[in-house]
Amino acid sequence: MKRLKFMKDRYGFDMLFFAMTALCLLIALLTRTVLWRIPHLSTSGILSVTGLTMLINLSRVFSKDIARREAENIRFTLFINKLIGKGGKKSDYITDNKGYTPLSQLKSARPKAVYCECGNKLDIPQGSGNQMVICPVCGKRMLIKHR
């Protein structure tokens, strides 16, 4: 039961995590097979930096600052889409001419999580104005005010 609650308010895995992991593994593989032959290149230094990058990458998974991790992932996804030429639709997020979404816009675009007194996380319907939400567990009614 405690293991399930451990990841409750954590960010989790995303596309940036998988891309960084693949890049670190590729660099480690190249270092062990090809780069060790270059005379003035420190393979242990490269592997140390790769390991440190993996630790930072893993710390993103357990982060509780979900808005920032989401912003990083959206910026990465927009950058990758620009590289491979997929331009496409940038979803509902407003982007400026630099191609990334400012954190302030992400925080306002994403509704805050609302918890009932019983501890259940409630789904908030999208929309504006005041909305009544009923907890499916205890049946308590709550008035949600949108900005």
Rank of each mutant, 00 (worst) to 15 (best):
R3K: 09
F6E: 04
K8W: 00
K8R: 08
K8Q: 06
D9F: 04
L16Y: 03
A19I: 05
M20T: 11
C24I: 13
A28H: 02
L30R: 06
T31S: 06
T33G: 05
L35H: 03
L35V: 07
W36C: 12
R37G: 05
R37N: 08
H40G: 05
L41I: 15
S42W: 12
S44N: 12
I46S: 11
L47S: 09
T50N: 04
L55C: 11
D65Q: 12
D65T: 06
R68N: 06
R69S: 02
I74W: 02
R75T: 11
F76L: 12
F76Y: 09
T77K: 09
F79S: 10
N81Q: 14
I84S: 02
G85A: 11
G85V: 07
K89T: 13
S91D: 15
Y93I: 12
I94K: 13
T101I: 13
P102F: 11
L103S: 09
L103H: 06
Q105A: 14
A113L: 07
A113P: 03
C116I: 01
G119C: 05
G119I: 01
K121M: 04
L122K: 01
Q126Y: 11
G127R: 06
M132F: 13
V137E: 08
K140Q: 14
L143A: 10
R147N: 13
